[in-house]
Simulated scan of single mutants.
Amino acid sequence: MSESRLREQVCLLARSMFERGLTHGSSGNISVVLDDGGLLMTPTDASLGFLDPARLSRFDAQGRFIDGDKPTKEAPLHRALYESRSGSRAVVHLHSTHSVALSMLPDVDPASVLPPLTPYYVMRVGDTALVPYHRPGDPMVADAIRGLAGRYASVLLANHGPVVAGTSLTAAVNAIEELEETARLFLLLRGLHPRTLSPAQVEELSHVFGNDHHHG
């Protein structure tokens, strides 16, 4: 996809998520890999609802900032996911309400924050890891993500929000939206002991749809 088309796609999908309340104010950020190995990233203090395609932050293949508005302070978070998840072409980070709420619950398993409630969570997200709280922009967040050694495409930052890598921008957006919807279902069903998919059902999804996500 051409750079100009990718710039438009970033702004279109960002606005879509903003308008549906998946992130608010100037929260959330998106990055995408360009054909030359460089990166486009949403700027700092920019609302995802009102991005200008021409003003996105542009990095070259060596990671140098070369053009556009000043990049998000979450840039190291994005880089850590690209470094540890080979094949990632986009990273999306939101402050989506139910995912943030989930990240604050005391009894969440940091190795797998959500059970396999739906086939689409298993297929699009897989497992989500919980990373302990660090202030936004803290380099320790990137270190914690590198410490997961690429085992997760989906990570929940405690008291902060989800960050998800995908093989394309649409894949990353679909996965983070699926994560938010599953977190919402989980909170709705909390204490009601819902049926989850069995290991055999999860295995069948992996076999039929060929994903490499794991559960438990």
Rank of each mutant, 00 (worst) to 15 (best):
L56M: 06
L56A: 05
L56C: 04
S57K: 09
S57V: 02
R58D: 06
R58Y: 02
F59V: 10
D60K: 00
A61H: 11
A61R: 14
Q62R: 14
Q62S: 15
G63P: 10
G63H: 07
G63S: 08
G63I: 13
R64S: 13
R64G: 11
F65P: 00
I66Q: 13
I66R: 14
D67W: 05
D67G: 12
G68T: 08
G68K: 02
P71E: 14
P71T: 12
P71I: 13
T72Y: 11
A75F: 15
L77S: 00
L77E: 02
L77H: 00
H78G: 05
H78Q: 10
A80M: 04
E83V: 10
S84G: 14
S84W: 01
R85T: 03
R85E: 07
S86G: 13
S86D: 06
G87N: 08
G87K: 06
S88V: 15
S88G: 10
S88I: 14
S88D: 11
S88Y: 11
A90F: 04
V91Q: 02
V91F: 02
V91G: 06
V92G: 03
V92Q: 04
V92K: 01
H93A: 09
L94V: 06
H95V: 04
H95S: 02
H95I: 01
H95W: 03
S96L: 12
S96G: 09
S96Y: 03
H98F: 14
H98N: 14
H98Q: 10
H98Y: 15
S99D: 04
V100A: 01
V100W: 00
V100F: 00
V100L: 03
V100G: 01
A101N: 02
A101P: 07
A101T: 12
L102K: 00
S103K: 02
S103M: 07
S103F: 05
M104P: 04
L105R: 12
P106H: 09
P106Y: 10
P106A: 13
P106F: 04
D107C: 07
D107N: 13
V108A: 11
V108S: 07
P110G: 03
P110F: 03
P110E: 02
A111H: 08
A111D: 13
V113T: 14
V113S: 01
V113K: 00
P115Y: 09
P115V: 11
P115A: 11
P115Q: 10
P115I: 10
P116I: 05
P116T: 05
L117K: 02
L117F: 10
T118M: 12
T118H: 07
P119K: 10
P119R: 13
P119E: 12
Y120A: 06
Y120N: 14
Y120E: 15
Y121S: 04
Y121A: 05
V122P: 00
M123W: 03
M123Q: 11
M123K: 09
R124S: 05
R124F: 11
V125S: 08
G126Q: 07
G126A: 10
D127M: 13
D127Y: 01
T128A: 15
